[in-house]
Amino acid sequence: MLQSGFAKYLRDGKGFEGTLIVAAVLYLLVFAAFPLIYTVVMSFQEVDMFTLGTLVRPFAGLQNYTDLFHRPEFAPIVWNTVIFVTLSIAFQLTIGFALALFFLQDFPGSTYVRGLFLAGWILPALVVGAVWRWIFAGDFGVLNYALQSLGLIDGQIYWLSDPAYALYSVIIANIWLGIPFNMILLSVGLAGIPGDVYEAAEMDGANVFQRFLTITLPMMGPTLGAVIALGVIFTLQQFDLVAALTQGGPANASNVAQYWSWQMSFQTYEISGGATVATMMIALVIVVAVIYVRSVQREQSF
């Protein structure tokens, strides 16, 4: 029997709702807000092995930031990150969009084949990385074998250890990993365009390309915006693939900001440096998140 005051309070609607909210807010405060703020705070502090156990440390002002900007690897890694994000998203989006349009056509088995594409998405990125390591392997990898058999290359390409290729190898694996996600979100967007709008356009005289340009693309605008924003966020999080494939090497040739931040924090223990990189990425992600939210709002406005 629920007789006590609190149990009664819980049992009537308000108390139950309140408890759920408090639980969720507590969770967010402890596991999301605190680490985030802690990271930002650390980027303005002198953090070393001796002050790890305390929250109160000497204030460093912007020293961590200027130090970071003056590192020789700063510019190459930022540039790598830009290439990583831009190419990943450009190809994930175009291939994903093309596949979404392809599977929108009603052909036998389309739903099953589309389902198979999702298989890649549910694999952990570390596993995907391990598989692509084999594909990219220099001496016995299947990619080199295929390219040689087709007569496209003569010798071996050392995809993961050649500084000219390492970054692009990671990008290729990341594109493969991201295509299903893009395809599914864009499929949902495409399914949201009513069929009779296309029929009306057909009656109005639009051929298939005109329908794509004047109906599909503009009506997909908000969805594309949301998918690109989510893509930027996910790509900036893509840590596992780098870890599994190249560990940022050789000589930072394939290093990207998110991996660099981890290296500094947990391998070389330059914790304030790692926190500084992370803080700058947080700022970037917030900007992208705002774009995402705006996009979603626009999506609902049609």
């Binding site: 009779d196 709008v197 029929e199 009306a200 057909e202 009656m203 109005d204 005289g205 639009a206």
Partner: peptide, 16 residues
């Protein structure tokens, strides 16, 4: 349809 020169008013209106 676009070669037939017919205009159609849909039940759902199908406005863009």
């Amino acid at each position: 349809p676009r070669e037939r020169d017919l205009a159609m008013v849909f039940q759902s209106y199908a406005l863009y």
